[in-house]
Amino acid sequence: MSVCLVVDDSGVVRKVARRILEELGFTCEEAADGQLAYEFCSKKMPEAILLDWNMPVMSGIEFLEKLRAMPSGNDPKVVFCTTENDMNHIQRAITAGANEYIMKPFDTEIIKSKFIQIGLIDE
């Protein structure tokens, strides 16, 4: 089963995301900031990462830049999931190597649609 790492400093958001992702067939792991996510990935690369932008210790974008520089760091598909909803942030995320971008609030429909597009799940 594919692993999806949910990176968000809000426990509530992680819980909601977990419920949706498990429904879509993923095994979920959680990290509360970019640093913890980085440590997780140093041990084992997940197939997918759902990534918040603003977090304490290390932000999502900082984590993504570090991740893409790691050995096998290009393997995980990264989907940003943040309240930052302007074109500048989107562009910056995609340039840094994000595969997709979700503007909060999200629901099952949106996550599913984005995951299908980047081939993480089938229709």
Binding site: M87, I90, Y101, I102, M103, E109
Partner: peptide, 19 residues
């Protein structure tokens, strides 16, 4: 925001839409 996130790849949003 909801409508542009259903089915629309982010690249298309960036290329073909203005906020």
């Amino acid at each position: 925001q909801f409508e542009v996130q259903r089915g629309l790849p982010i690249q298309y949003l960036m290329k073909y839409f203005t906020q």
